[in-house]
Design a binder for these strands. Structure first.
Lengths: 249, 249
DNA sequence: TAACAAGAACTGGTCGGACCAGATTGTCTC
DNA sequence: GAGACAATCTGGTCCGACCAGTTCTTGTTA
């Protein structure tokens, strides 16, 4: 008789990883705490130890726990020793809500990565690159009438990744992909703020600058767009405060 | 009778992942190629299919393969869809040699990440932060007489990560940790170029600027250090060319 | 001979038991 | 009380059994 209630579609392992992630990030376990042994967790949940072990390995790869062989599994000081997967877990637990700090950090890194790629691409671009970017933009425009915002977010992410690919700077592409999950969360918020139309027009402005080989112009467009988004975010936070003030006094 | 010759200390899974990584990155399989089925690979190597499957899952997490259920496992277009683990694998296969492109990209990202952290820390730092950084620096100096360069590299990485931790910008810390493996490779090269003494003196200059709350000064020190390193790297490449010229004509 | 349906074989996916090696704790003897 | 040995604990690894869906092969019917 299993004690685990399996949510539709989740394997035991997925259920276990989600449950432990939630508990760790919710503070049920603090950094340094020793988790129950794999056998205890397996017995408690009514699943096999190998599944638990596999789940714990995943938690370790996510930076949430440290495994000490022969000793036990300890909650890691994950905000200090964690990695991008830690951040992805935090963001996912928050329903893909990005805090101000996360947003600033993501966008600054994006400026660094995509800034380099844009400059390089403006220098090296060929005609097929422009055709490629235009085709992708048109595809996004087609989709914008009937696709969910998450789908659109994926398409925007891929457009900007294509900048890195076309620039020939493979490493920048790898870094950008590494930030995929948090970037999708960002694009969802961005599309909600500006709407798909505005966002697509901006893509076309990038293409114009790339066609003109204006690396500094393209970089500036990126930087200005980022600054505007952050400014709007701040204003929305201010608006929320004003609305609360008018309700409560 | 196992057909796998196990290198000392490697599990079947580790052996399998290394073998496949080497073959994929060496071009034995091209992006889009379908790998032999898990059962075929298992039979060929004389190990269990589950181990092969587990290894393939790891290769997928590394961005090297795409798994299509019921169809097969295909080599991914990993330079376009891969992630930081892809880069780590490439660097590791090259005996931790960093190409110029990788070095430039890493350092630019580091400038973005640590630049933000330095500025923030100079603004918010307290006395204990300075004490902490001084203690870490002294520890590094103690180790520099008898430690291997890889150990020193780890200590330098942690010193710079501590900047992020002390800045209170957790997200920057997570990003920095994400770049841990390639950063270690960089620090090894850096220490070989400048020597531990010089590198430690530079840490102390950072501390002086942080103590003085000179965010722009600290950022400049970082940027200048990076530019100098890249310049020397270029000169070394030039020196190699000159030496070859004088040998061959 | 061609088309359709059923069965077999294939694919990756998941799970749990068996066993391993080393660390830690408990028990017994001196 | 100290030391030696055994038992128990820990995480670690591997494998066979079974699953679900896809694709290919074979047999039957028109």
């Amino acid at each position: 008789m299993k004690s685990v209630k399996i949510t539709a579609g989740l394997t035991y392992k997925e259920f276990f990883v989600r449950k432990m992630t939630r508990e760790i990030l919710a503070g049920k376990w603090n950094p340094g705490d020793r988790l129950p042994s794999e056998r205890e967790l397996a017995a408690e949940l009514g699943i096999g130890k190998t599944v638990v072990h596999s789940g714990i390995e995943q938690l370790a790869a996510m930076g949430l726990v440290d495994i000490k062989p022969k000793s036990g599994v300890y909650v890691a000081d994950y905000m200090n020793t964690g990695n991008i997967e830690t951040l992805n877990a935090i963001v996912h637990l928050n329903g893909n809500e990005l805090s101000w700090e996360v947003t600033v950090a993501i966008l600054d890194l994006r400026l660094a990565i995509e800034g380099m790629a844009l400059r390089a691409l403006c220098f090296t671009r060929c005609a097929e690159d422009i055709v490629r970017l235009r085709a992708m933009t048109a595809q996004i425009r087609d989709h914008s009438h009937h696709s969910a915002v998450e789908e659109l977010a994926e398409l925007f992410f891929r457009w900007h990744r294509e900048i890195c690919i076309l620039s020939g700077k493979s490493i920048l592409t790898l870094f950008m992909n590494t930030m995929h999950d948090v970037s999708i969360a960002f694009w969802v918020n961005y599309l909600r703020m500006y709407g798909p139309s505005f966002a697509i027009d901006r893509l076309e402005r990038f293409i114009t600058l790339i066609e003109a080989r204006d690396g500094e112009g393209a970089y500036k467009l990126l930087a200005i767009g980022i600054a505007d988004y952050l400014s709007r975010l701040e204003n929305e936070a201010g608006d929320k405060r004003e609305r609360l003030n008018s309700i409560f006094g």
